[in-house]
Design a protein around this nucleic acid. Structure first.
Lengths: 204, 204
DNA sequence: ATTTTTTTCGATAGACCTATTGAAAAAAAG
DNA sequence: CTTTTTTTCAATAGGTCTATCGAAAAAAAT
């Protein structure tokens, strides 16, 4: 006779796994058609279930978008924080940060794309946590650059804030370079972004 | 008694001017809410007219999006072609190309944003000409880079295709850096993108 | 002032979409 | 096998949206 708590948590686990399938489908449809272009009917069709069944797994389409965005950015800040606080050189930190940033393009492309392109359609009330996360993330990235300048690794003339925006923008656009028939892989792309930046920014 | 043709063209001109106001409103609403998030009612409200009145100026919402995208890219390829075929140095061409690319962010921001973010929602049939235009544009930009390599201005190791994608991506994301409270102006941004690229790519 | 042309409007058909609800089906437990 | 719980479904209320149409209003021409 199995333990009662075990039984309950096993049930919840089953529910949670199905929920992940639902969010996977939502992410795929959001990424393909955009949040407003995607209907809950589209998501249901992708899963082969009735549209109304979705509401057993989320309360509203808004909530589904929030969940997809949260899942798509899970661990982002933490991974960058580890890099920032490591004992790597500024140049190595940049390489690591870029690679870490674009990794999800491989592992969870639909979540990544939904986050970068559809976040703006989240109602203000749901966007607070995610905006805070983005702000934290940007500050961390900028800190790597500022440390590099303080360090005399990077040129004094480097505008850290602008450079941060340029690096992150390139990372966020990278998914579109892959579909662009030329078959770059993510590591090539990360290396290229980092190389091009470091070649220009590094003191000689 | 005015010439007949004159009278007709003057009327058409009046119609055309009102149509521009309509497309301006459409571009503004598309840019703010996204194509699918924007309703024709939103556009009409912005103009202070009835929703049904819009259909005197365009046949469908799709067509409005197409017109906005076409207007937003008018002259793009031509301007770049002039730069490519000029006698400027590759480095000067890059500076000119970047400045030319982001100019519309100042002059017609809503058209620019709608083009870069909402083009994907144009039905395939309407997207052909615009896709061709983008392809031509990218090739021209890549040619500047390839010429610079052939020229020994840029390093042999430069991946021209990837570098082209990186430059254009940065330009297309630039609007978001401006709203980002820090008050950069477009020329600063263009200079920064060009400097950072040229510093790394130029032979020494 | 009257006629013609241009522009706007109200009403609405016809789709589609989100979210709810109570019931049915499926799965798990007893 | 029966009961309980979980999961799915059909039906639908209530809302929004695009596009059409004939009429009205406004402007221009005669």
């Amino acid at each position: 006779m199995p333990d009662g708590l075990d039984r309950i948590s096993r049930k919840k686990e089953k529910y949670r796994r199905r929920q992940v399938e639902v969010f996977n489908a939502a992410a795929a449809v959001f990424a393909e058609k955009g949040y407003h272009g995607a209907s809950t009917g589209d998501i249901a069709t992708k899963l082969g279930i009735a549209q109304s069944s979705l509401y057993y797994y989320f309360k509203s389409k808004d909530e589904a978008l929030e969940m997809v965005c949260l899942e798509g950015t899970k661990g982002y800040v933490e991974r960058l924080k580890v890099i920032v606080e490591s004992s790597l050189t500024p140049a190595q930190k940049i390489r690591g940060a870029i690679l870490s940033h674009i990794q999800p393009i491989d592992t969870i492309p639909d979540y990544f794309r939904t986050f970068t392109e559809e976040l703006r359609y989240l109602p203000r009330s749901r966007r607070k946590m995610l905006n805070q996360m983005i702000s934290d993330y940007n500050k961390l990235m900028e800190r790597i650059l500022a440390d590099g300048v303080a360090n005399k690794t990077f040129k004094t003339s480097l505008d850290c804030h602008l450079a941060m925006l340029q690096l992150i923008s390139q990372c966020n656009e990278a998914p579109q370079w892959i579909s662009s028939k030329t078959g770059y892989n993510l590591e090539e792309i990360a290396t290229s972004i980092a190389d091009n930046f470091l070649l220009g920014a590094t003191r000689r």
